[in-house]
Every structure is written in structure tokens, then in C-alpha cells.
């Protein structure tokens, strides 16, 4: 009996997956979710040739506003909206976004840093490791370029609380284009500090770098999932109501949650959802 139920379920799921969708849809929202959305939309459209979806990267707040106003039918969000803000809309987690702080072992002399000190480094208020109880050496700040999503995410998660919403990183920082370049610069420069996507930090550790714990919490997937590690957040897809079976929105969410979709999440440098 059980087997039949499973087989039936599998069939239904398969039928669902192969159902063809068509029409024009507008999604929108978070710029952080955009790389996932763009890649998923591209694949999803290939499987459904009659379908046209656009994703407007207007930010999480703008996306929710447009969703509630009925201008779009699905929005991406990197903000953890409260029930009040959602006004009945439903947020489905689709991925995790976590950043690791890495330093060069030479010329730093610390293994843990508080969120506050980290923010002060990137705001330019602390310029020597001695001020944080480390080595007497200048801090070489490695940042990402202005248009990177990680650049905005790091400000939002680390610096926004003490220094406000408008990004005001210290300008006296090495600007790099990719996670890989951050790693290379940090590994080659004594006293250097940088941040990379969590998935990338393992490469840095293998190459001799050091991953800092933040307020004594190590950046592990488990700590991120338990919401203990502070430089992390969930990414969501928000729909106006509980997604309804048979709609494009539901199929799209299912697609992102499928192994295929989670692979897209990973290749966009985010953390796939933990397997339950």
C-alpha cells in the first residue's frame, strides 16, 4: 500500500514537473536573490517554451510592496520580514547567504572578532590590529567592488546597525572583483582582512588562511541554520498567499527547491538549504 502511494505521488510529481506553463509573468524583488532568479528563470523558460518571466531587481522592500499591490505575483527577498510586514503574504526560504571573515595569519594576531569591531574596521575607524588586542600592524582592508551583491550584503549585515543604511565603507581598501581575488590578496598580504561567501572560505583555509569566529561563533552551516552565526541570512521567495498547486509561481518555487534549483543556488555562491 505504502509503495503504491509513493508511486502515485511520484507520478503526480512527475506530471507536475512536466506540465507546460505559458503566458507572461513579472517577478521582482531582492538584488541578492536576482542571480538565483535569473538562472532559474532561464532554465525554467527553456523547459516551458511558451513561458515568459521577467525579474525586476528592485530590492526586497520594493519587491514586497509591488507584490502586495498586485503588480507582481512573486518576489524575492533577502530580508526577514515580520508577519506585520508580510500582511498575509507567505515567505518560503530558498537558500542561505552566509559570509566568512578571513585574515592572513601573519600580522593580525586574532582569531575572534566582535561584530562591532568588524564594522569599525570596514568603516575605517580601526586601522591597527593592536587596537583590537592583536599584532602591532596596520590593518589591510580587502573589500569587494561597489556593484557586488556581497558588498551590499556585508554592509547590511555587519555595518548597518552602527553606521546606518547608506553604504560608507572606508575608501582605503583594496578593491577586488571576486571571492577568489579576495582570497589571493588576503593570503598574500600580512595584516589583511577580507570577507568571502561561506562556501568559499574552505578554499582559503586549505591555502593557509584563517577564518575568524564572530562573537565566538564559527561560521558553519549548522550555526547559520540555527541562526547563531550573525553574518548570515535566509533568502526567501514571497507569494501573496500560500502557493497554489498548478500555478507557475508554485512550480517555480518547487523548481528552485529541487536539486537542480539548489545547484543553481550553489553556483551563485549561496548556501543550499540544509537537507531535512
Amino acid at each position: 500500500m505504502k509503495r503504491i502511494v509513493i508511486a502515485t505521488l511520484a507520478l503526480v510529481a512527475a506530471a507536475g514537473a512536466y506540465a507546460q506553463y505559458s503566458g507572461s509573468y513579472t517577478f521582482g524583488g531582492s538584488t541578492t536573490v536576482a542571480p538565483i532568479a535569473y538562472a532559474a528563470i532561464e532554465r525554467f523558460q527553456k523547459e516551458n517554451p511558451g513561458l515568459k518571466i521577467s525579474y525586476e531587481a528592485v530590492g526586497s522592500g520594493g519587491g514586497l510592496k509591488a507584490l502586495l499591490a498586485g503588480q507582481i505575483s512573486l518576489s524575492g527577498s533577502s530580508a526577514d520580514f515580520s508577519a506585520d510586514q508580510l500582511k498575509g503574504a507567505v515567505a518560503t526560504p530558498i537558500a542561505l547567504d552566509g559570509l566568512s571573515v578571513i585574515v592572513n595569519k601573519k600580522g593580525t594576531g586574532i582569531k575572534n572578532i566582535s561584530m562591532e569591531d568588524l564594522a569599525r574596521i570596514y568603516h575605517g575607524d580601526v586601522t591597527n590590529w593592536k587596537q583590537l588586542g592583536g599584532a602591532n600592524a596596520p590593518i589591510v582592508v580587502v573589500n569587494r567592488d561597489e556593484s557586488s551583491g556581497t558588498y551590499a550584503a556585508f554592509w547590511e549585515l555587519v555595518c548597518q546597525k552602527p553606521f546606518g543604511k547608506a553604504i560608507a565603507y572606508t575608501k582605503n581598501a583594496i578593491v577586488t572583483k571576486e571571492n577568489g581575488e579576495v582570497a589571493v590578496k588576503v593570503l598574500a598580504t600580512p595584516g589583511a582582512i577580507g570577507y568571502v561567501g561561506m562556501a568559499f572560505a574552505q578554499e582559503v583555509i586549505k591555502a593557509g588562511g584563517l577564518e575568524l569566529s564572530i562573537d565566538k561563533v564559527m561560521p558553519t552551516t549548522a550555526n547559520v541554520v540555527a541562526k547563531k552565526y550573525p553574518i548570515s541570512r535566509y533568502l526567501y521567495i514571497v507569494t501573496k498567499s500560500q502557493p497554489v498547486e498548478g500555478t507557475v509561481e508554485k512550480a517555480f518555487i518547487d523548481y528552485i527547491l529541487s536539486p537542480m534549483g539548489q545547484a543553481i543556488v550553489k553556483s551563485a555562491d549561496y548556501i543550499p538549504l540544509p537537507k531535512k
Binding site: 567592488d145 561597489e146 575608501k171 583594496i174 578593491v175
Partner: peptide, 29 residues
């Protein structure tokens, strides 16, 4: 070069040139 978008502050200060500026921002702009 360091690629910081600031005035070069001396010989060992970080620098961004015209070409670096184009390539840094091109991918997202």
C-alpha cells in the same frame, strides 16, 4: 594596484587607473 577608488596618496598608496575602473565595474554596471 589595490584598485581603491581614491586619490593616489603617495608612492605606496593604492591606485585605480582608467582601465582598472572600466574592468572593475563593467560586469554589473
Amino acid at each position: 594596484g589595490g584598485n581603491a577608488p581614491i586619490m593616489p596618496s603617495g608612492l605606496n598608496g593604492m591606485v585605480r587607473t582608467l582601465t582598472m575602473n572600466i574592468i572593475t565595474d563593467m560586469s554589473y554596471a
